[in-house]
Design a protein around this nucleic acid. Structure first.
Length: 214
DNA sequence: GCGACAG
DNA sequence: ATCTTGTCGC
């Protein structure tokens, strides 16, 4: 992860680390759920990571941490984690407690090489993670009913790589996939447990706000 | 070659 | 991601 300069290099790391992803439940009782997100400053020169830890299931903010580092990798579809993870890793030590679960702003297994941001972060931190993306990256799916809570499998090459979930009545759905140490049904349950009246989980909403405010 | 393409 | 006010719909 340190000093990754080229896409070819990043791809090698993905091919190697993808085998470390655990797709079954390996979590303890979830008391703290975290949301992580990245914001940019100084015309993208600086990456600002924000981590928001909420109590579960109350969803109240209990701790937050941020970190700013120079942006060292461009945005290349399929390699988002190499752009965002360095800042997230820098912010983590600023936390006093360790979250039991992390909801990431991006895909998990719903990735060309089954190693999206959520998988990458989960493996590096060895903490259960879920990928919660606001738009589709790969995969196809049937139409989703308009009621909050309905979902359909996200398929790629006859393989279920995640689900497309209606997080709120009649709004654009979100894309949920396994990150690390959790299975898909459990991931759906926790994402639902982090939703209130908005399209995005509270964890991500807090992280978004912290990462994009000065 | 042409379009698609997490944030 | 980010630039940005009001506005249409439930």
């Amino acid at each position: 992860m340190i000093n990754v300069k080229t896409v070819a290099q990043a791809k090698e790391i993905q091919e190697q680390l993808r085998h470390k992803v655990i797709t079954c439940d390996h979590l303890k009782e979830v008391k703290y759920v975290a949301g992580v997100d990245i914001g940019f400053e100084d015309n993208y020169k600086i990456s600002k990571a924000a981590i928001a830890v909420l109590s579960y299931p109350e969803l109240e903010l209990v701790e937050k941490a941020i970190a700013r580092i120079p942006t060292a990798f461009p945005y290349v579809p399929g390699y988002l984690s190499f752009r965002e993870i360095p800042a997230i890793l820098a912010a983590f030590p600023n936390l006093n407690l360790t979250p039991d679960l992390i909801l990431c702003d991006g895909q998990g297994l719903a990735h060309p090489r089954r190693f999206g941001l959520a998988c990458h972060l989960g493996v590096l931190l060895d903490i259960p993670t879920i990928g919660v993306a606001k738009s589709r990256f790969i995969g196809e799916h049937e139409d989703i009913p308009l009621e909050k809570g309905s979902w359909k499998p996200l398929i790629d090459n006859d393989e279920t790589i995640g689900v497309v979930l209606r997080s709120r009545n009649k709004v654009k759905p979100i894309y949920v996939s396994v990150g690390h140490k959790i299975n898909l049904p459990t991931a759906i349950d926790y994402v639902m447990g982090c939703l209130t009246k908005y399209r995005i989980p509270e964890t991500t909403r807090w992280a978004d706000r912290l990462a994009s405010s000065k």
